[in-house]
Amino acid sequence: MSAAAPSAQPKLRVKNATKAYNTRSGELVAIDRCSLDVKAGEIVSIVGPSGCGKTTLLWSMSGLHKLSSGEVLLDGKPVNGPNPEIGMVFQDANLLPWRNLDANINFPFEIKGTKPDRAWIDDLLGRVGLSGFGGRFPRELSGGMQQRAALVRALSFKPSVLLMDEPFGALDAFTREEMNQLVEEIWMAAPTTIVLITHSIEEAIFLSDRIVVMSPRPGRVAAVHDVPFARPRSLEIMSTREVFDLTNVIKREIVGEQKSRYVRSSDAPVAQSAV
């Protein structure tokens, strides 16, 4: 069951997005005519085979990558570059090693020349279990603690959209489950629109209102699934038949798309060698 608020228009809209890169071996099309709507307050996960353009799509949503054609709209307005309404959590925590935790969280405010909301930041730090760690440097924090700090930094300026690029992929399974529960807890306390890239179908099911399956490169939207579980969600649902069945459906779609790609690439006749 989605907690997304009804809206006349999507919070975030991707329209016919195409991104091509010029490489030494020629043009490489990462995503091709990709379209996606994300409602306000919704959590959407994007899954697909490795190299399908998931990260390219996410970075295009953030305004960090310029599209070759198509557009990204936030509240109906084009996203043509970094936007203060869009926060991002990367695969690595990307904390500045010479700054302590407090200084890392304050960094976006220094760039914008605005004053941090310390009450909000302290509340976030408490929720992620980092109260009292403000004077610690990244080297003094575990990988999970660094990712929690990166999440606090991304949420500290209250973005209306949060983009997450495989943020928990490097964590152990137990810490990853903790982070998934933490994201849902924070989202339920202060709903924001979240788009998450993940290689874990189980993670996508636990966190999402909808799951988008992408085709192999060039990436297109191959399928979209609603996740029919009410919130808050407990880890116990992950062992249910419903989750098992949905996981298998999505796995078959990803594998099927990969096979289709290989079939298409082998359609061309093979020249016979002279004997």
Rank of each mutant, 00 (worst) to 15 (best):
A17L: 15
A20M: 15
N22T: 15
G26F: 01
V29Y: 03
V29E: 09
G41Y: 02
S45M: 03
P49C: 10
S50N: 10
G63D: 06
K66Q: 07
E71P: 06
D75F: 07
K77L: 06
P84N: 07
M88Y: 14
M88T: 13
L95H: 03
L96Q: 02
P97M: 05
R99T: 02
N100C: 04
L101K: 01
D102C: 03
I105N: 00
E110T: 09
K115M: 11
K115D: 05
P116F: 05
D123L: 07
D123C: 01
D123F: 05
G126R: 09
V128G: 08
V128I: 06
G129N: 02
G134D: 08
E140M: 14
S142I: 08
S142V: 08
S142N: 04
R148H: 06
V152P: 03
V152C: 12
R153N: 07
L155Q: 09
L155W: 13
F157N: 04
K158Y: 11
L162C: 15
P167G: 10
G169Q: 10
M179E: 08
V183R: 00
L196T: 03
I197Q: 00
T198A: 09
I201K: 02
I205V: 12
L207F: 01
L207T: 03
V213C: 05
R217H: 08
V221K: 02
D226C: 05
V227L: 10
V227D: 13
V227C: 11
L235M: 14
V243I: 06
K251H: 02
R252A: 15
K259R: 13
K259S: 11
S266R: 09
